[in-house]
Design a protein around this nucleic acid. Structure first.
Lengths: 137, 137
DNA sequence: CTAAACCCTGGAGTACGCTCCAAGGTCAAG
DNA sequence: CTTGACCTTGGAGCGTACTCCAGGGTTTAG
C-alpha cells in the first residue's frame, strides 16, 4: 500500500511516515515510479509504535525492537523470547507506576508535604545545612 | 536552601532547576545577595516532578498541578483529591500497559504479524484500496 | 590577598519528534 | 491534453526539555 493509505489507516500523516522511514522505524520497497510501497502489516506496526510511544518508549527504542523482530530467526521460540523480553520491560514500567501510586496513596492518606508551606518560617542557615556537597573535581 | 544543595538533594542540576523556575515549576525567594533560596519541601516536589515526568506528564501539566496545590485551601481533602486524580491517571496508564502486555503475550503464543513478512506478495491495486481518504480541503 | 567554591544572567546549542513548504514527477479520469 | 489527486525530495521551522558557556559577583578558608 502507498504512503497515503498507510497514513490514513494508521491515523497519522504522510510526513510522519516519511520521518519514521528516515529513522528506520518503517521500511518499504519502491514501486517502479518511485512511490513507496508498504506491506499491510505496517498498519499494525504503526499502531504498536503509537502505543509504545505513549507508554514512554522513544522512537529509537521502538526502532531497535523492530530491528530485532526483523533479524530474529523465524522460529516461534526466538519471537517468543523477544516478546517476553519486551514484556519484562513493560513489567518494570508497571512496577515504577505502582511505586508512584503507593507514594501518592500514602500522601493522600496522611497530610503529606509537597506544598510550598503557607507561612514562611524557614530561611535556613546561610551555609551547608547538609554536608553532602562533595565539591566536584 | 540554595540551588546547589537543592539540585544535589533532588538528583538534578542547577541548570535544570533554574529552567524549572523559568517555567514556573519551582519558586523560591532570594537572599539579600541575589542567591535563590528554596524551602526544604522543594526537594520532595522535585522528586514528584521527576516521577510524573516519567509517567508522561509534560512540565506544563505538572506546573498546573503545582498551582492547584498552591491555590488549594489548606484542607488535606484538596490534596487527597488531587492525588487520587493522579492515581486514576496512573491506573489508566497501567491498564494500557497491561493491554500492551497481553497483546505481546498473545503474539508470543501465536505466530503474530508485525513483521515485514519474508515473501512479498502484495503490491496492491494502484488506486484507493481503502475509501477513507477524504481529501483535505 | 588569593584561591576555590559557590552563585548570578543571558543566550546559544542540542536531541527528539514532528510539521510545513516549495518545486516538481506520475497517473487515471474527463 | 489537461486537471487534480497523489507521490517525490530537501530543507526550514517548531515545541519541549534541557545543557553548556561566557562573563561576572559573593563568600569563606588559608
Amino acid at each position: 500500500m502507498r504512503i497515503g493509505e498507510l497514513a490514513a489507516r494508521a491515523g497519522t500523516s504522510t510526513d510522519t511516515i516519511r520521518f519514521y522511514e528516515k529513522v528506520g522505524l518503517v521500511a518499504g520497497r519502491r514501486l517502479p515510479n518511485g512511490y513507496r510501497d508498504f506491506p499491510p502489516e505496517t498498519v499494525e506496526w504503526l499502531h504498536y509504535v503509537r502505543t509504545a510511544q505513549l507508554l514512554g518508549f522513544s522512537l529509537a527504542e521502538i526502532a531497535r525492537t523492530g530491528e530485532q523482530l526483523r533479524d530474529a530467526p523465524d522460529t516461534a521460540a526466538a519471537l517468543s523470547a523477544l516478546f517476553r523480553e519486551k514484556i519484562a520491560v513493560i513489567d518494570a514500567r508497571m512496577a515504577e507506576l505502582a511505586a508512584l501510586r503507593d507514594d501518592l496513596t500514602a500522601r493522600a492518606d496522611t497530610g503529606c508535604p509537597l506544598r510550598p508551606a503557607s507561612p514562611e518560617g524557614n530561611t535556613g542557615p546561610r551555609r551547608a545545612t547538609v554536608s553532602s556537597s562533595p565539591g566536584r573535581p
